[in-house]
Design a binder for these strands. Structure first.
Lengths: 110, 110
DNA sequence: TCATAGTACTGTGCAATGTGTGGTAGTGTG
DNA sequence: CACACTACCACACATTGCACAGTACTATGA
């Protein structure tokens, strides 16, 4: 299945949640998201989201050299990012409940 | 809050669910969606979605004149539409569970 | 009669955002 | 030296919800 459209608007929250759990660099965040069940998320989407969130002041950024490959660009969450995450989490729960209701009840066979 | 992005990809399912419940015309579908909790859904979005779903063979279409205003363009769901609805509903439940998990567990304060 | 409001639908262009593709680079392995 | 894995980036693109503007019908009230 193609979850591309479903990701719209929630990838921000997902990335924030993962980074909030523990600082991470792009390649790693992608892996963690996939392990968590978002198996088809594209790396370009995550890198783009990280940059966007950083530009919005939701993330900090620091580079760490690696012995096993190229340097890693780590991201950490800021207080502002935590606020955004909290807001988006609530929005999600509210929205998910509403939509599940619509699909379950309004969607019942007539 | 702005749920615009969250609607991406699920408005199809929501509209199908509403029409599956009972045939409806655009203006009415908008009202029903809003009553169901999607309060900010724009009418242009719904009309566009109805046209898209009709073009995809998910809906039938018939015009009924009205005494209280302009004619009404009713939409009914087709078998193909019901299949799409069933698929999208499953996709939604799967996706919602995954994302809720990500936001709840991965999002826990470190 | 004319203004206004509610109903009902359409078209156009825009904004947001995830993705595909391709490219750059570093490290290690056969 | 070819190849794979790691790690990141830029760009053009597709999808889709929305704002805005416009058309048109009915009813109400000044």
């Amino acid at each position: 299945m193609d979850t591309t459209q479903l990701l719209k608007g929630v990838l921000d929250a997902a990335v924030l949640a993962v980074v909030n759990h523990e600082d991470g660099y792009g390649y790693d965040v992608v892996r963690r998201l996939r392990q968590a069940g978002l198996e088809n998320v594209a790396d370009a989407s995550v890198y783009g989201t990280l940059r966007r969130l950083f530009a919005a002041g939701a993330l900090t950024n620091y580079v760490v050299p690696s012995d096993e490959g190229p340097h890693r660009k780590y991201y950490g969450i800021t207080d502002h990012g935590k606020e955004i995450l909290a807001t988006q989490r609530e929005e999600w729960h509210q929205f998910a409940a509403t939509l599940t209701h619509v699909l379950t009840h309004e969607g019942a066979s007539s």
